[in-house]
Design a protein around this nucleic acid. Structure first.
Lengths: 133, 133
DNA sequence: ACGCCACGTTACGTTTACGTAAACGTCAGG
DNA sequence: CCTGACGTTTACGTAAACGTAACGTGGCGT
């Protein structure tokens, strides 16, 4: 075993673990979503940073923009255990669920519509096969 | 009185009927998706143009890019009734359906995940209410 | 004749999340 | 000592689909 318990990870190691590019990590840092320790010029990511990245990536999966995610992280920082903050986070999340559900419905409609168009096309092709013989 | 001719529509009339901006119509023209007649400097949209715009907007609902739509329109032009072309169009459409279905699954997953997170949050809030009293 | 409105063109701005050089520092191995 | 792998910063590029000036022009109502 090379590293039993790596307290901190280099940027490269972070990239491997979370499957992101160095550019992305630096970008998140630029957006103040991350703030790894510096040793010399190099970045060292501690547990806290990993947790935050976890949240960032999860937020992205949920379709939150990085700006939104920044707000959420800031709220967690101020006082993650604060009741009011948590309530607000919940509100945001629920609103997002609404959006996503709406999106899902639209998508379902579009799929149905497109399938119907395809069916029409198939019929047309069938006719052409008949007449064309 | 406005133009009594139902044959062709001005850009303004098109915008109202299809709920798009003039900028969008000119943009589509720039992309060679539309090619309205010109009388002097003004654009006049005939039935054909309306049909094409219809297809453009439908394509957009389906999530096709304007470039994709351009390909489709070109195919219809070459010979909409051509069997081979129609077959290819069908192939594109079916591929798109696959994509959209995949997207739908992902979205469903994300929604479920987020709902579960929300549930956790609610529990937490409930606990806080207990202890905080 | 005058002014205004709708129309036209050209061209840069917007948004999001990074990608992609360029140009350089630093540290371990051979 | 040199090389290679990794690190850094700064800054412009990308994709999509228009929005938004800024400025010019024709026609028509009075």
């Amino acid at each position: 075993m090379s590293n039993a318990s790596p307290e901190t990870l280099t940027i490269r190691q972070m990239c491997q673990q979370f499957n992101v590019t160095p550019r992305a990590l630096r970008f998140y840092e630029d957006k103040a979503l991350l703030a790894p320790r510096r040793v010399g010029a190099k970045r060292l990511y501690a547990h806290r940073d990993r947790a935050r990245l976890q949240l960032i990536l999860r937020g992205k999966r949920f379709g939150f923009s990085l700006e939104d995610i920044g707000q959420l992280l800031a709220m967690y920082d101020t006082k993650g255990s604060n009741r009011a903050q948590l309530t607000r986070t919940m509100a945001l999340a629920m609103a997002r669920v609404q959006q996503m559900s709406a999106q899902q419905e639209e998508l379902a409609l579009a799929i149905a519509e497109l399938k119907s168009e395809i069916a029409k096309g198939q019929e047309l092709l069938a006719q052409m096969a008949q007449e064309g013989e």
